[in-house]
Write a protein that binds this DNA or RNA. Structure first.
Length: 256
DNA sequence: ATGGCTCTCGCGGAGAGA
């Protein structure tokens, strides 16, 4: 079973590249973030034609998440309870015996911006929600976390410590999530690999290998025991056939 | 570098992203 997450930075802008990627990689379940599309305008027929069902929690202009799956999925939760004013950033479904959640975590903007405090609170609510939900023991929490878990996950290494995405306050909220019993599947599979999932559009950051690993697939222990491989799909961070890329690459894991 | 691209909305240029 192939599971993936991808921040596509606009469904309308990415749909042709997304179709190519689905056709080539054949994931069974995909968490998408940053649809920037209202739920009512989601083009279900496009994905149906490729063999995918879709559950969608969108909104106009910003945010928006969806779950694509080859087999029908059951919607369990659209939106993080109590955080409606932060936008559409979470969706959970039961698919293939797995409780699958994908999230688009708040950015926080800058350390002195009000959104930074809202980001920390959002993570605290996510942890409480995750802990309080009566989950299937085979569960996945994936998406764009907008936190760099470890200095080795930043192109600047420990020099970036203390910057937004790299603060101890953010990392402690992320650690609290892991402490509920979640494991970073890419890092479990490749403990020493320097790999990023996001690169700035500006200044040739991708080709300079100046990126961050902020897109993660977390799994419960029983799910993790099924792990076969994990990869970050850098090929789809590249423009192809005049189709522009997202600033994020897909992350893929294969489980038994 | 002091945000140098790309997206959305909507028709000019601003806001957001990480």
């Amino acid at each position: 079973m192939r599971i993936a997450t991808w921040n596509i930075n606009g469904l309308k802008a990415r749909i042709e590249l997304l179709k190519l990627w689905l056709t080539e990689r054949q994931p069974d379940v995909v968490g998408l973030q940053e649809l920037k599309t209202p739920t009512s305008e989601f083009p279900h027929e496009v994905f149906k034609a490729l063999g995918y069902y879709a559950l969608v929690h969108g909104q106009k202009s910003w945010n928006g998440v969806a779950i694509l799956s080859k087999q029908p999925a059951t919607l369990l939760q659209p939106g993080l309870p109590g955080e409606d004013d932060m936008g559409s950033r979470l969706i959970t479904a039961l698919v293939g015996g797995i409780e699958f959640t994908t999230v688009y975590c708040p950015n926080g903007k800058t350390l002195d911006h009000a959104d930074y405090g809202r980001k920390l609170k959002w993570f605290e609510n996510l942890r409480a929600h995750w802990q309080n939900t009566n989950r299937n023991e085979h569960a996945v929490l994936c998406g764009d976390f907008n936190i760099v878990p470890d200095p080795s996950d930043s192109w600047k290494g420990a020099d970036a410590d203390g910057e937004i995405f790299h603060t101890t306050a953010e990392r402690s909220r992320y650690q609290a999530l892991l402490d509920t019993g979640l494991i970073d599947l890419f890092r479990r599979f490749a403990p020493d690999e320097r790999a990023f999932s996001w690169w700035d559009y500006r200044g040739g950051a991708f080709h300079r290998r100046q990126g961050l690993r902020i897109d993660l697939i977390l799994g419960t222990a029983p799910l993790t025991s099924r792990l076969e491989s994990a990869q970050i799909d850098r090929e789809y961070r590249k423009k192809r056939d005049e189709l522009t890329a997202s600033d994020h690459a897909p992350v893929i894991v294969d489980i038994k």
